[in-house]
Amino acid sequence: MTTLAAPQRTEEAAGPSHRASRPRGGRAGGHQHGGRLAYAILIVAALVSAFPFYWTIVAATRSNAELAKTPPTLLPGGNLMHNFQQVLEQADIGKALLNSLIVSGAVTVGTVLFSTLAGFAFAKLQFKGRNALLALTIGTMMIPPQLGVIPLFMVVAKLHWVNQLQAVILPGLVSAFGVFFMRQYLVQTLPDELIEAGRVDGASTRRIFWSIVVPIARPGMAVLGMLTFMASWNDFFWPIIALSSQEPTVQVALRQLGGGYVHDQSVIMAGTLLGTLPVLLVFGLLGRHIVGGIMHGAVKG
């Protein structure tokens, strides 16, 4: 259910795009130096991108009454701990973070594994119905999974899975995009000769998969993994239907907080801060690689 919205955006930029005809990595930057105006615009854009985060911090450290003042306060205050306490009382953010980690982790690992398996088969193996199945996969890639939630809910209700994490994990594993992405990746990076060489050595397909395909596919798997993880972490529509405040993911908890009892803006912002912090942390550590991954995914795919 999860992965479509975001990673979808990467793929076909790739498909039809031109393979780089200039040597890769030869030049770090663009063709010209940026002028002052370029810097000015970029700085403004960066500020606009970052300001809501700053505002979240300001609001999270204030009280509701302070937020209702004119002129508005633009500096952090000293109410953070109190607000955090309120958050923890109203929504189980701790459990939500753990649940989100479990769900996104399982979805990521599963998606990457299954996509690599299928992607390999579509890229390098011959079998009946291959083209038809691949066409089916690509054809449904563009369809938002949101459109299937009604039967999905009926099934999940029948299985009594409402409010259980597998209700979110299993549908999340379906990623037509992932299969397509890995197929494209392997078509381009995995030479047929390597597989042939493996066969000549008498290796089974399974051996070939684990000792030849996976090592080569790893960079692609890493990109797919990052995209899948973020999309799953941020998934909203299905989790708010299938889960509840008793067993929330971060997004469900945030929604709960947004509509929770003491409707206090500063508390909501404190919760938003708590829920976003882990992603920001990951971004701080891996930001460069994520940027690289997205751009890479865009060109390669």
Binding site: R24, G25, L101, I102, S104, G105, A106, T108, V109, V112, R218, P219, A222, V223, G225, M226, F229, V282, L285, L286, R288, H289, G292, G293, M295, H296, V299
Partner: peptide, 19 residues
Amino acid sequence: MPISRAARRATLRLGAVAL
């Protein structure tokens, strides 16, 4: 622009922990 080795390792580790 191939993704760096460090990132790959970090991502894999993250995945392992999550699993």
